[in-house]
Each structure stands twice: as C-alpha cells, then as structure tokens.
C-alpha cells in the first residue's frame, strides 16, 4: 500500500476512531489484498510507511465478500462489481482478507 494512502488511513483512524472505520478493498490480486489487509490491521509489513509498527486493527473486507455484497443494492452491484466478480479469484481473495481480519482486526 502506498505511503500516502497509509498516511490518510492513519489520520482518519485518529480522527474518527478505529471502531468507526471499515476498510473496503477492491484489488484484483490475493497477494496484494493480503498485504493491504495486513497493513491496516497488524501494520505495514514492508516497514516503509506511516503504518510500520502501527496496529490499527481495522475491520477489513474485500468488496466481493458475501457480507459486503449483501449490503449493496443488487442493481448497483450488478452495474459496478458483477463483471469483476466473474473475473476475480474470489475464493482466494476472500480467504486472504478473512485470514488477516481474523488475525488482526480488533
């Protein structure tokens, strides 16, 4: 996750409190999604950004996870996400993000 985004997330968390923030991912690669999820839960694994050593413990989901899909108006989901849902490796994305959520979300 780039350093500017890490800084923004840290700032928002300080402003609103981690319990009021849900991090929603849309990346296509399970490996990258896992790193992004790790960054906002246990901290930046590359130790390069503002979240290095900072465990925000945010609740983090990928947009294709069933809990999130259920929150959408089905028409909006069809218009904005259905195509990617067909293309993505949904099972692995869900597994990677869920794993980080279980390990690091407060």
């Amino acid at each position: 996750m780039d350093l500017q985004n890490q800084a923004r997330i840290k700032e928002l968390t300080e402003q609103y409190g981690g319990e009021n923030i849900v991090m929603l991912l849309g990346g296509a690669e399970p490996e990258s999604a896992s790193i992004a999820a790790e960054t906002v839960t246990v901290g930046d694994p590359t130790f390069a950004g503002p979240l290095a050593g900072v465990s925000l413990g945010l609740k983090v989901y990928h947009v294709v996870e069933p809990e999130i899909k259920a929150e959408f108006d089905p028409k909006v989901y069809e218009e904005q996400v259905a195509m990617m849902e067909m293309v993505l490796d949904v099972d692995n994305l869900v597994a990677e993000v869920a794993k980080m959520r279980q390990e690091g979300s407060k």
Binding site: A28, E29, E31, S32, I35, A82, M83, M84, M86, V87
Partner: peptide
Amino acid sequence: AGAGNVPEANYKMIAALAVMAGEIARGEI
C-alpha cells in the same frame, strides 16, 4: 511484483462483458 497478468486480466474483463451481453456462456470465458 503482485500485479498479476495484466493483459490477461483485461481480456477476462472483456469476456465477462460478453457474458453479461449474453454473447457467451460463463464457462466460455
């Protein structure tokens, strides 16, 4: 670098549009 196969991802998206348009079946992506 964790960015996947970019052209293939594009082609899958185009194929998914073809599925949504009813041109091909999902199994033909």
